[in-house]
Design a protein around this nucleic acid. Sequence first.
DNA 1: TCGGTCTATATCGCTAGGCGATACAGATGT
DNA 2: ACATCTGTATCGCCTAGCGATATAGACCGA
Lengths: 269, 269
Amino acid sequence: MRSILHAQDGVRQPSEEAEQDPLFVQAVARTVQVLSAFHTASKPMSLNEIAAASGVGKSATQRVVATLRHLGYVERDPDDNGYVPGIRLLDHTLDYLRLNPLVARASPVLLELRRNVRERIDLSLLDGLRLVYAARMQSKRETFFATLVGHSVPVFCTSGGRAIMAAMSDEEVEEIIAKSDRRPFTAKTLIEPAAIREKVLEAREAGYAVAVEEVLPGEVALGVAIRGPDGRPQAAVHVAGSLGEWEAEEFTRRFAPLAVEAARAISRF
Amino acid sequence: MRSILHAQDGVRQPSEEAEQDPLFVQAVARTVQVLSAFHTASKPMSLNEIAAASGVGKSATQRVVATLRHLGYVERDPDDNGYVPGIRLLDHTLDYLRLNPLVARASPVLLELRRNVRERIDLSLLDGLRLVYAARMQSKRETFFATLVGHSVPVFCTSGGRAIMAAMSDEEVEEIIAKSDRRPFTAKTLIEPAAIREKVLEAREAGYAVAVEEVLPGEVALGVAIRGPDGRPQAAVHVAGSLGEWEAEEFTRRFAPLAVEAARAISRF
DNA sequence: TCGGTCTATATCGCTAGGCGATACAGATGT
DNA sequence: ACATCTGTATCGCCTAGCGATATAGACCGA
């Protein structure tokens, strides 16, 4: 079992391939490394902690952090001690969402879907082995942090992830299964390759995927893949509901057609 | 009238004060400048456009962009041409939201508020002359992009902004009014200093502020300030509804007490 | 097929940007 | 009072990375 908060990857290490690339700017990487130090944090960090977590020397960290603070990308925690990420980062969030053509296409469709489905609706974007939530429309009860933009979940054990795998070749699916850190979130999380493969086949058949309590207890989720111009899956639409209100069967029967239609409207294939 | 999309400030220029600061790292600033080039964009950008918008030399831009691309902070638009911000930025969004103590305190309160108020609820954070939306909980009908995290609106003409000004000294209010770019969003946007001052006084009296159709036509919004440990306003809770469903009076009478209570629960004063 | 004008990528020499080491100064704690 | 955190500052040496320039592929209209 692991916390849902740690689904994000670490920073891509600049070493190996990148090092020899003549066009690789270390200073940029350092900046990113410093900012990424917060990925591992659960509370405000001191300079030394940032230096340790980022792998950047203490002196350099000091000056980079000071600069980032000047620019609004790092702040001091008001209950003073330690640094936290700064509000300027949200400007880039907006840029990302605004300029991402898929998000732009998806928004009206999701709003329309939301009108017909009074459950939580999410749009998640594929990034390697994970799905990153880009747009979230809550329903009634939600469990807090799980509902934040930027949150990510693994492909292998989520409804959207399986729907996406179903739209890939078998080789790609195997690669994802093999590379994933398949630690379970709940007792029901499927981690066996065989079980995952089976679920993917089901999804390929049905055109959508379902996951029951695999990430959050009491949650039933339904995912449909969104394909890009080349036919490759890029993202997924999720509909999530509570088992307190719905039987999984009934939930699926009711909402799957709507979700499929929405995903098709967003797809470019 | 201006578009609601351009409420964000430009990048803080590294020149002036910063230049002489011995601890200021240019490379960090350059990185930020390149990423901030997208603030002015409404479509994918080419290298030359980025170079022009960021004020960074063409060669440097090329290498910085290449590096950022390596790291996932910049991507190519799939309908290929031009660069867009990359998905890795969302990881930092999550870090910001997770580690911001105010957001953390606010989330459960906002969810609770949402349970009682079936209208749109927002949490916005004060950043100079603007309010940046950090958490958004939609209701039924929404007008699309206006509902994204990272979006920002001016302090001077919003319900939350006025509630925040009401919690400041008169000098600070004057400063905000003076420095703000007071272009109207709608025909009803109040831009006269006198009118704004009056609204602020009303808000100081009532403990909350109301704005009707000042940012979006057909929208009534209600804002309450959230104070930090030092008593200074840091953020605001918004409740927004449609004039198609609500009379402004009725809307206020009904929801203001709940919003005030929520803001107080989040405040640290 | 040719120039013209975009795009991005690559090479290279020179220099100033910024790293590491080290020292310093407040807080906090035992 | 001492130890151990915190963040800040100084300085000399070296290399990272800038600007200028060249290359090369796409696309367009003639």
